[in-house]
Design a protein around this nucleic acid. Sequence first.
DNA 1: GTGAAAGCGCTAACAC
DNA 2: GTGTTAGCGCTTTCAC
Lengths: 339, 339
Amino acid sequence: MANSSIRNPTSFDVARLAGVSRSAVSRVFTPGGTVSEETREKVTKAASELGYRVNSLARGLQQRHSGIVGLVASRLDTPLRSRQVRQLSEALIREGFKPMLITAEKPDDVSTLIESLLGYRVAGMILTSDSPTRALIEDCKRQGLPVVLVNRAGVSNWGDRVVADNETGGRLAAQLLIDSGAQRLGCLLPRRGTYSVSGRCDAFLATAERLGIAVKVIHAEDQSYADARAGIVDAGRDALGHVDGLFCATDLMAIGALDALRLDLGMSIPDEIQVLGFDDIEQASWASYNLSTIRQDIKHQSEIVVRLLIERIADGTLASRVEQQPLSPVLRGTTRHVG
Amino acid sequence: MANSSIRNPTSFDVARLAGVSRSAVSRVFTPGGTVSEETREKVTKAASELGYRVNSLARGLQQRHSGIVGLVASRLDTPLRSRQVRQLSEALIREGFKPMLITAEKPDDVSTLIESLLGYRVAGMILTSDSPTRALIEDCKRQGLPVVLVNRAGVSNWGDRVVADNETGGRLAAQLLIDSGAQRLGCLLPRRGTYSVSGRCDAFLATAERLGIAVKVIHAEDQSYADARAGIVDAGRDALGHVDGLFCATDLMAIGALDALRLDLGMSIPDEIQVLGFDDIEQASWASYNLSTIRQDIKHQSEIVVRLLIERIADGTLASRVEQQPLSPVLRGTTRHVG
DNA sequence: GTGAAAGCGCTAACAC
DNA sequence: GTGTTAGCGCTTTCAC
């Protein structure tokens, strides 16, 4: 009770107790600080005695940034995104930053929110996929604020980007289905795709066309399990009757499709139709699905993102960079193995 | 380029342009501020002209807290947790707070991390389930820092708590299986349970005992899908042969169990054995599982959490409170319906 | 209702 | 190496 009214000790208190100046205290708590072993000890002792802790607010006021990084993500409760956020958060923390999480679905809110982040003098911002409006990125540019875009189209040539190699991904997918004996391909994708979703599907379609193979495109309302399932059910056996190799834009959609195919339409997989997803979310490996897919290495991705961010914070004049993260096929039970 | 060297406008700049004092500017941007309509207009105009934005760091330095709330969560990439974090984050933001996300698996790290949060003069902290050590909460107590615990045991009588009604939950589960005709119960739980997981299983076991029904307890190494599946497989048909109603501590475990039962052991559900989960994660409703479960309303939960937090920030002398969130059975295909 | 002045707690130059 | 000084940008008495 009375406890809460006790003022937190300041560097001044520590300085007095240790018999040194406040600058000395500051130096001890500053990573590159140059202090004699003797003062360092005195200060450390006094500090721990008092329970002193640097006030990051005051420190941030002095330096160029507060050590906070804005982490913007929509659909956080989705398997891929939650994994991304976890890895990004851990990577940021490991490097001494503190992630401020902005979750918002409507672009309008997001803009206001990010506005308010700027008030905290964030060191930079990480924007995942479908989150932010263009205007917002323009804003960051105006502020000279470091930005890393994850699986997202670039805007105004501002910020670094980490993207999956959609070109290769889509090609890989087509190749894989064809090599497994598929003759008539299908592609399930959301009506309004995000950068990476559309990118990989485009590459898939282009590859098929190049090889002279027809592709039946099936639309789902959105990227959710339910929409994917509904999309397949709506298309129905007729439309699918000819398709024997279905590429789905994401694993989540593939799982919806799988349930629709097997349970709603009574088809057998991979005998009647092979199914291939993208991402390798955890659920893809669950025994009931055992989904073949193309994996994005999210941990690796996060590390690249944070590295780029740190480099840019250190040097804002760097040219805009784009890094591609590798993809790897994961063959499970929804495709036919060859050899 | 040169852009980034331009200083952000301060309240001083706005004051000068508007021809008023800095205090006037401050008042305009302070929620309860008392200013004449005339100055308000002048200030607002000048501010937007200059692109002025309050510096939250400086503001936080002045006030009791920075408006940041620590949000501590482990296993963020798990369905239930990611939903919780999303809802909590959105609720906090709606109330004008900014969530700082701390994800860490090892308790040691967490303590250091939270330590560092204190340096940001956070308004309070939300600790989910298995995250933090006792020592940490003692720390918060010492600081007089508002804390809300989610589905977690209390410590030192500090902080408010929001918990599922485990007592009712466990009883409901037992009742439900028995009412659906189960005669020999089983209970799948992790070797080291968290507060809520252990709580509901204990209540389940107690209820069964009271009714004179034997329960076969099956242990999984941990709460994951894989561990649950392995737990069931290891137990094998023999141990399970007698069980015709299995309660699993979480949906994730139930799904692992389901796959083990059906795919590894070749049992048919719900005919040979009924399965009941807990939480109602999204995957429980996926057609391949169609899992009967007991739902926690996460959205509602988050709203309670944030309300408690706000109340306590407003008045730190409140007595410690515990709120229970309601549970509701969701009957799907893994139990036999009656009537 | 408004302005002047006094901090909030820290770091970064600059002399020593 | 260490201390002195001058801010960082804001809010908050306190007179007016």
